[in-house]
């Protein structure tokens, strides 16, 4: 829980034995990010050494030999000025294109990603698997499977950071952010909160366990028999009485939710919004902001009654409806 799962290191020798210059690389993008990192390190070293050695040579060569020495004049040279304006600019262009291309590629999760859900709260990570298991400050993932984390915070801003995967994203209250990774090396890796979040910020850390498919399946099966997230959501759906209005047919006072996920909705206020996680979240917590014409505006807010974990379960349920009846809805 507090980073103590690994043995605490004692003594000077042991401290130096643990000396490392390179973090573990355990995701599909880590090597690419590292390549850019090494390129940048190369550029930095080249120019630092260049400037230092020029200064050093000039320091020796042109040192003042007598108090009334008069140095030789030099002229400002336009060619020189342009050279050291244009060459750094070109280098910057190369870096920009390289870094941005990589970033854009890394920003989009593959379509076939497995979704997992994160709720950050002072000072722990709640993680839910779609199959149902929930864990705190631990994340078990299968190797070589793209995984998309959908994240939100219950209080302040946190940041979900797995150095070995080279991924990081702020976790904000009141909205969903996401990141994805595909772990490619079995092992145990750090999970950090990288946005200062209060007193125990430095203890909001945990472990990511990358497992083989078989081990992961065994781990999923091994825990207490839990319902899937969608099933948990379905239970909440009736527990909070959502199904009295959203009956799923024409008799309900609320719209049917089947096949809704991913569909653009025209709202009362004239906006058109695609029904995504944030849309469903708004519909539960601030219904008037996503009021759809043709239905009564009477839906009460559930803010304060459901927590962020439950909202995610409800979203999973609504999404599961979409998955079932997408063809009918069209």
């Amino acid at each position: 829980m507090m980073g103590l799962t690994q043995p605490v290191i004692h003594g000077t020798a042991a401290v130096w034995a643990a000396f490392q210059l390179h973090p573990p690389t355990a995701s599909s993008i880590a090597d690419n990010v590292d390549k850019l990192y090494y390129f940048l390190t190369g550029i930095t070293l080249f120019f630092t050494i260049l400037i230092f050695s020029i200064i050093f040579v000039f320091m020796i060569k042109y040192r003042r030999r007598s108090e009334d020495e008069i140095p030789e004049g030099t002229h400002t040279s336009m060619a020189l000025e342009l050279t050291w304006t244009i060459i750094p600019s070109l280098i910057c262009v190369v870096i920009f294109i390289w870094a941005s291309a990589l970033y854009v590629r890394n920003a989009r999760p593959p379509a076939a990603s497995t979704e997992m859900f994160v709720v950050g709260k002072q000072w722990m990570w709640h993680i839910q698997h779609p199959e149902g298991p929930r864990e705190i400050d631990e994340l078990h993932v299968p190797v070589n499977v793209p995984i998309k984390m959908t994240m939100t915070s219950q209080d302040v801003i946190h940041d979900f950071y797995i150095p070995a995967f080279r991924v990081k994203k702020d976790v904000l209250p009141g909205r969903y952010t996401s990141l994805w990774f595909e772990a490619n090396k079995i092992g145990t890796y750090h999970l950090f909160c990288a946005q200062y979040c209060g007193t125990n910020h430095s203890q909001m850390i945990g472990w990511v366990y990358v497992m083989s498919d078989a081990d992961y399946a065994a781990w999923l099966a091994g825990g207490e028999k839990a319902e899937s997230m969608a099933q948990q959501g379905e239970r909440l759906f009736s527990q909070f009485g959502c199904n009295t209005c959203h009956t799923g047919d024409a008799t309900g006072t609320g719209p049917s939710l089947a096949g809704l996920y991913g569909k653009p909705e025209k709202l009362q206020n004239g906006q058109t919004r695609v029904v995504d996680e944030t849309f469903i979240r708004d519909a539960i917590l601030a219904p008037s902001t996503v009021h759809v014409p043709g239905y009564a505006a009477g839906m009460p807010t559930f803010a304060g009654q459901v927590n962020e974990d439950q909202v995610l379960q409800l979203i999973a349920y609504v999404k599961s409806l979409g998955a079932q009846e997408r063809t009918n809805a069209k």
Partner: peptide
């Protein structure tokens, strides 16, 4: 840090 991909890390 100006480079998007490395800034993430």
């Amino acid at each position: 840090l100006a480079s998007l991909a490395t800034d993430v890390h």
